[in-house]
Simulated assay, not measured.
Amino acid sequence: MRYLGLILLLLALAALSLAAGRVWLAPPALIEALSDPEGAGRMVWNLRLPRLLVGMIAGAGFGLSGLVFQTLLRNPLASPDVIGVTQVSAFGAVAALFFGAPVVLGAWGGGLAAIAALAWLAAHPRQGFDPRAVVLQGLALAIFAAAGTEALILRMGDSSAGMAMTWLSGTLNGAGWAEVQRGVWFAPLLLPLLLSGRVLDRLELGDDLARALGLRVGLLRAGLGLIAALVAAGSVALCGPMSFVALAAGPVGRLVAGGRPSPVAAMLTGAAFVTLADVLARAMAPAALLPTGLYTALIGAPVLILTVRRMAQS
Rank of each mutant, 00 (worst) to 15 (best):
F98C: 09
A142F: 01
S196N: 02
Q87N: 13
R155C: 11
L238F: 03
A142W: 00
M242K: 05
L34P: 02
Q70E: 10
T171V: 03
G61H: 12
A95Q: 06
A257L: 02
L154P: 02
L255Q: 12
A229Q: 08
E150I: 03
A178P: 05
M311S: 10
V44K: 00
L72V: 00
A58W: 03
Q137Y: 15
V94Q: 11
A140V: 11
L18I: 02
A123I: 00
R2W: 13
A301H: 01
V236G: 02
L255C: 05
S159T: 15
T171H: 06
L247R: 04
G55S: 05
L49H: 02
G111C: 12
A178Q: 15
F99H: 08
R310I: 03
P192N: 07
R202L: 15
A228D: 07
P102H: 10
V264S: 10
P27I: 00
L290M: 14
Q313C: 06
A95Y: 13
A140Y: 07
G128W: 05
Q87S: 15
Y3I: 03
Q181N: 03
L304E: 05
G110A: 08
A265M: 02
V274K: 01
Q127P: 01
L306W: 14
S160I: 02
P131M: 04
W177Y: 13
V245Y: 05
W45L: 06
R2M: 13
W177A: 09
L64I: 12
A281V: 05
L226T: 13
A288Y: 12
A29W: 07
A151R: 15
P27E: 00
S196Q: 02
L200I: 01
G138E: 09
L205M: 15
G39E: 10
I115L: 15
S235W: 06
L121K: 02
A212H: 15
L203K: 07
G250Q: 08
A233P: 08
L215E: 03
L16S: 12
G59A: 07
A78C: 08
P27F: 00
P192L: 07
R254T: 04
F129T: 04
A233I: 07
A277V: 06
T71L: 06
L105I: 09
L289R: 11
G253S: 14
L34I: 03
F62S: 06
V54T: 05
L25I: 07
A145M: 13
D81C: 09
V94K: 11
L290G: 03
A237H: 09
A12W: 14
M267W: 14
A285L: 12
H124A: 06
S169D: 11
A122M: 06
V264L: 15
V54L: 04
P261N: 00
G250L: 02
L203H: 10
A297F: 10
E150P: 01
I299S: 00
E204R: 14
V236E: 10
G138Y: 10
I153E: 12
L139P: 05
L4V: 14
G157F: 13
L9N: 08
L230V: 07
S65F: 04
W185K: 01
A90D: 08
L294I: 15
G41T: 05
F186Q: 07
R211C: 06
T292P: 12
P28A: 01
